[in-house]
Design a protein around this nucleic acid. Sequence first.
DNA 1: GCATGTATATTCACTAGGCGGTATACATAG
DNA 2: CTATGTATACCGCCTAGTGAATATACATGC
Lengths: 196, 196
Amino acid sequence: MPEAESSTRKRIVDAATKLFYAEGIGRVSVDAIAEKAGLTKRTLYYHFKSKDDLIAAYLDGRDQPNLKQMAGWFETAEGGADRKVEAIFANLARVARHPKWKGCGFLRTAAELASMPGHPAVKAGSRHKANFEKWLAAELSAHSIAAPHMLAREIMLLMDGAFSSMLIHHNPDYIKAAGHAAATLVRARLVSATIS
Amino acid sequence: MPEAESSTRKRIVDAATKLFYAEGIGRVSVDAIAEKAGLTKRTLYYHFKSKDDLIAAYLDGRDQPNLKQMAGWFETAEGGADRKVEAIFANLARVARHPKWKGCGFLRTAAELASMPGHPAVKAGSRHKANFEKWLAAELSAHSIAAPHMLAREIMLLMDGAFSSMLIHHNPDYIKAAGHAAATLVRARLVSATIS
DNA sequence: GCATGTATATTCACTAGGCGGTATACATAG
DNA sequence: CTATGTATACCGCCTAGTGAATATACATGC
């Protein structure tokens, strides 16, 4: 019954997503995921060949939803590209206040798996960050901003720094500072575009 | 024998430092640390009341050495503050190529312990990052740069972003891009200082 | 229409080993 | 004789992963 995707498989990934993000991959047992999904561990191992596979599926499933959230914040914001970029950080600072917020799942997983650089979950994270950078560069380019790829990378660096600083200090001011710096960088490129 | 600090205790922390940084705190057992230190687990538990205590001791012990390394890179570099800041990133990009490099231990620990925000090791990381920010602001101030605290924070955000991006992409170009952006931000403040 | 075969999907019970932490004993030094 | 430090051996629990049986669905042969 290849009905789009086995609903059992989806239930497992959904349960894994909640637990892995909330607790970290090393602190969540396969038993706990099976229980949360309402089935036995043996069934889980019928759909995934190992825990590592499930970790990778968790991150692969977060790529598009995360990008869509960023894009939504960007598009909804009023004003020029600088205001739109700053809006992403402002929304990030808002949601990061929620007690369930635990940083960027991609970065946290890469940190946990630092001793396994070829792990499929780390690769999934690398792809996601590259997708974000690419999407942002395209948006900046559409707003007639100079050197959009370089600028997109700088903004992404500020954003990952904001994720990390928020996680270690638990203070949204760091995210706002990153947003302010990002907006300044955008305006600087706007100027040079106007000059040329 | 209170000889400065019990050499046994130091041996334990040294072993823990190597293993925690190389593998991540969740992947290292207390047994493994005891074996690496050349003693039994019971002796380890005589000196530390829990694994969590040992994790905190590991990060507390990295604060000053890490700061000294950054300061050394900054002071050794020739040129103005912009070149000195960029030199920190250039050195970071260099050491990050080494296969034993596994990112920033403070950030990785905060990522692993995201579900325990009050953990003493996370607090140790917060203190270290604050110390770095403070040191850098003082250096920038000594170089007659405007708004040194804000700038120091922006540079720290770029640095934490560089740590994270390097960990997920394994490509030092991200660290260099962060260094370039940081140097640009420094030069922008130099200009406004000259104007006023 | 009904038996049979086969692939998918699921459960219960289990293994072998690793985990953080501890009870107890023994050595050594002041 | 007491405090500090170290060792052997152990506990109860949790871990990722598995073997064997079972249930369901659906196609085929007759």
